[in-house]
Design a protein around this nucleic acid. Structure first.
Lengths: 346, 346
DNA sequence: CTGAAAGCGCTTACAG
DNA sequence: CTGAAAGCGCTTACAG
């Protein structure tokens, strides 16, 4: 049993070294405020006793846990896994530890998770996207928990955020698709409700369309949870209609990988019969055949910068302007020129 | 500033409700030990003040954090991401929070991470595999931190573990490959040093080979860090030798996906010219062309059961026997019968 | 540069 | 069922 055996305390060390507990504490936390001989005596005692500070006591006295909480939709999606990995590595470098929780893409669970992490003493919080109940924002504000929003960036919202403009990115990719002559473009989107990144991507699509005089309402759009099989099924549905799209833009790479397989199941060649695009540029985008034209998002960079920004927030206390990481378009084989309708209808 | 504003304390609640702090504490932690009228009075005060327990104080007094630490090689590998996701979901269900740290596949970092999580007050630890410095094991034992090993299972080692027998699994898959007539089999393995799972897979391969009168030393084996491009390069190297293997077994699915692309780069058809197998059965195994024959590992189940077992260890205190989850072989198109040497040499 | 001492906000035997 | 009080092990003004 853990509690029955007791570990050496600061006081034990102080006694062994013949100093006060205050001095031991200083040796450990602010060593330059102690002269060298004293410090050496103390450190020797620390080593001899195998002393480790008691976490709870330290937290209570210092009112900080050096712990950062992150709440993400899921670790199973490579984009969050990579970003979170980089986030954790950077936190570790600064002496912080990561507390994680996931909502499994059920936004209604987020509040409970936030409260749990706050109750666990998280010094700061990393949250994905802006969509949130005002009451929750009020709670966060009242508890004065530094919070950073990642994976999204809206210049008009004055909250600390680090990410990229999903809408602008999708608009850019759409313009590339339009430039290839496509005029009938299908969309396989993630569920937009409760996911502002998905909603923004759809909005960006509509925006680029509008600029060319086209209308979103004329395009076949399917919303489906992110997932390989869902992409496959959606693709099959889209291509079995009378007015087949010549290009299908997907809400992320996983959906696009599924769409590729859907096309194959239908005997359609990509991009000759139909073009496909993704979003995120995860490893999968390079692995599938043909490789995906997609939006490259710097996930690791986002994670690293998010860690730095959040620590600054926690330690500095003052707010940070939203920062836009920017994305680029990765041109690969899955996007080609539009094929005249009659030819492809075969 | 967080520290300047102070939140209501237990004592504030006690005063507001006209009871002692002990009673408030009981209402929150062991409500059945308080009669209903008292409890209602207290809860009303809790709500009115918006009271939340102070984490540090609670930890110090209770000597528990309700926090579990996990140290994994990386979140970027889907197998750990999925398992950890399930692990976290189950922990959450039991009121525990997950603290994560990763070694980026550098085993020498593990000790530091373990100490950091212990210092953060983790009530228990999830560790991957058995390979560990004896001094570290001694430290864990001395601190009396309940520890569970996952992703591996060795019946002969009497430590709490939950996983599967990597060696037996690889031996089984090898027998399938042998049954297809392959006698010259290449291996693209993960780095075995410091990774007992990779080492065991290699050992399982050798074992099955030996049972058929073949010898590992006659087979071309490449060790390389897990990674798509590494698999691709290794495959190209293997197939450019004089004595080409007719089948290539890979240490995991990511390497196998790379091998598939390497084969394609060389103009080799899979499985007609060369068979390829994977390990893990992540989503990718179904996505690539052709889909991979691989070992199916129940990652989510492992995560969920690991959480349950570790909580039992933390709360019960007594040890658990190692449990074997078992794996199955997924037969897909990437494995086919061996082709006569002269034919394929072309 | 160092020490005595208060205080952080809970939990939990121990009484009653 | 409830309360008074000790105690958990640190940190940090405040003196000196």
């Amino acid at each position: 049993m853990r509690s029955s055996r007791s570990f050496p305390t600061l006081e034990d060390v102080a006694k062994a070294a013949g100093v006060s507990t205050a001095t031991v504490s200083r040796c450990l936390n602010t060593p330059d405020r102690v002269i060298k001989p004293t410090r050496e005596k103390v450190m020797k005692a620390v080593d001899a006793l195998g002393y480790t500070p008691n976490f709870g006591a330290r937290v209570m006295a210092a009112k900080r846990t050096f712990t950062i909480g992150a709440i993400i939709p899921t670790m199973e999606n490579a984009i969050f896994a990579r970003g979170l990995q980089a986030f954790q590595e950077e936190l570790h470098r600064h002496g912080y530890t990561l507390l994680v929780s996931s909502t499994a893409y059920r936004p209604e669970l987020e509040e409970e998770q936030i409260r749990a992490l706050v109750a666990r003493g998280a010094d700061g919080l990393l949250l994905i996207g802006y969509d949130r109940d005002p009451a929750l924002n009020a709670y966060l504000h009242q508890r004065a928990i530094p919070t950073l929003i990642a994976w999204a960036f809206k210049p008009e919202i004055p909250k600390p955020a680090i990410g990229f403009d999903n809408r602008a990115a999708m608009a850019r990719l759409t313009r590339e698709v339009l430039a290839q002559g496509h005029r009938r473009i299908g969309v396989i989107s993630g569920i937009a409700k409760g996911n502002d990144r998905a909603a923004e991507r759809l909005a960006g699509f509509a925006e680029a369309l509008g600029a060319t005089g086209l209308d979103l309402r004329d395009m076949p759009v399917i919303e489906t949870p992110y997932g390989f099989e869902n992409g496959e099924n959606a693709m099959i549905r889209l291509m079995q209609t009378d007015a087949r799209p010549t290009a299908v833009m997907c809400g992320n790479d996983v959906l696009a990988a599924g769409a590729l397989r859907g096309a194959r199941a239908l005997g359609l060649a990509v991009p000759q019969d139909v073009s496909v695009t993704g979003f995120d540029d995860i490893e999968l985008a390079r692995i599938v055949t043909p490789p995906l034209t997609t939006v490259h998002v710097p996930h690791r960079e986002m994670g690293t910068k998010a860690a730095i920004a959040l620590i600054a927030l926690v330690e500095g206390g003052d707010s940070l302007p939203p920062t836009d990481l920017g994305v680029s378009i990765k041109r690969r084989e899955s996007l080609g020129p539009a094929t005249p309708r009659d030819e492809q209808a075969g």
